[in-house]
Design a protein around this nucleic acid. Structure first.
Lengths: 241, 241
DNA sequence: GGTTGATTGATATATATCAACTTTCTTCTC
DNA sequence: GAGAAGAAAGTTGATATATATCAATCAACC
């Protein structure tokens, strides 16, 4: 889709300046920026590559950067005591990741870890503040984006606290199909531990619950490929908790 | 603190126009507004009074208003299927309540119900959008406010999904003392059912868990008055889940 | 005196934990 | 590049436990 040579150049140089990170066609927050503003935002940004398993942002650390994912997939994790984690959502290309900080404080409120190889850019968060000053449409989009995440988090909260395991597993599967992979038999690049952390349970419980769905003929799985066979039934399970 | 006659007038007239709703001394989002902008925002706002138990905002309904609490206390509730609710937070004087909508969509994502007698104002949400256009500091504060709520929700999510009952009860009690009543033996105007809904459990479980804390001498309770006797111990329980 | 909220007890159940085992992936060696 | 050895991930079963549910009693309050 993009000029490959530019992408490769961008990936290699430490202080890349390619605007391709923010494609105009995308329904991105950044589409509200003028060429000048985009130039300002992306000048001197740091392009970094992470390998699977590497930490991109670490919870409870202080930072004055925010991150834009250019390529690959990462998980947004809330770490609690005793290594019990909750995966809040997955982020991929063109996602803006502020990790809860940036505007309210400089503390990262969750950890972001690469699942696949991730190409991303670190941009100084003060630039965001400058742009909010200048461009009200940008502020508005940012606010909208924030709000959406808030609502998503609300739904996650209600789901995790009120639904039984089958409902939570159904939610995770539907989220993966509809929001992440967007194909039906999808090749899941998350392990069972991670899927369990998305569903608020132990991996053993997740496996058992998923197997139930398999035995009912609602889903099919082969290694890491998952197929939702009876989506209506799965949605019913999601709804009835 | 305020001129009583104005307050009374404001409470009585259906289309009140008093600016006292947004006191300058308060650390309010509205302090960033100019006199003109504040005038614009508050002109023609609807002042309404709700009795305890009455619904101020109803989840899943569409609305083009947002609410400012002038006086009293209300609970922000996420309703799930089968009457299982989660109380997300309590709001009182000078709280801005958008119920998850306003900027992203016009759908209310949770219910707001009066606990005490509540005086509040309904303001057209399009005005908010106008002010975001005009005043970047206001946008910034709004964004900050949104972010804070996001982080609070995150903490709630992690607490409710990862902690055992004693930890969740401890969280609720500390929240009430530190953020809501701000006195130590506080007179709680929530019933046990509501306290349970704040802690993600049934009322029976909440009562039992609270009694444990009472028997350990960590809290004391007399009717609806709750006193936190050993705050350090309670914080430890909150921390260790 | 009846309705509502609070409390306690007995029991059921969803889910976690622990442990064993199997499969798949990785890496090293020849 | 094939096969062996080791590590990691996945799976299954038995058991423990946190929490919900149901039912009954008790206290408070119009």
């Amino acid at each position: 889709m993009f000029d490959d040579s530019i992408n490769r150049e961008c990936a290699n140089c430490k202080r890349a300046c390619c605007l391709k990170c923010f494609p105009e066609e995308e329904a991105s927050i950044f589409r509200t920026l003028t060429a000048d503003e985009l130039e300002y935002l992306t000048a001197c940004k740091q392009s970094v590559i992470f390998n699977p398993g590497e930490t991109i942002i670490k919870q409870n650390t202080s930072s004055t950067y925010f991150v834009c994912i250019k390529e690959g997939m990462a998980k947004v994790v809330a770490e609690s005591m005793k290594g019990k984690n909750v995966i809040l959502r997955l982020v991929s290309s063109h996602s803006l990741v502020t990790a809860g900080g940036v505007v309210s404080d400089d503390i990262r409120h969750f950890t972001v870890t690469a699942i696949t190889r991730v190409e991303c850019c670190f941009i100084d968060s003060s630039k965001l503040q400058q742009l909010i000053e200048r461009n009200s449409r940008f502020s508005y989009e940012l606010l909208k984006y924030n709000n959406k995440q808030n609502i998503q988090m609300l739904n996650t909260l209600v789901g995790l606290t009120q639904k039984y395991m089958p409902g939570r597993v159904a939610d995770t599967l539907l989220y993966l199909k509809n929001n992440i992979y967007q194909t039906n038999p999808f090749n899941c690049n998350l392990n069972k531990q991670e899927l369990a952390e998305m569903s608020g349970m132990t991996k053993e419980s997740f496996i058992r619950s998923l197997k139930e769905l398999e035995l009912s003929g609602i889903v099919r799985q082969n290694k890491r490929q998952i197929e939702i066979v009876k989506e209506d039934d799965l949605m019913l399970i999601s709804k009835n908790g």
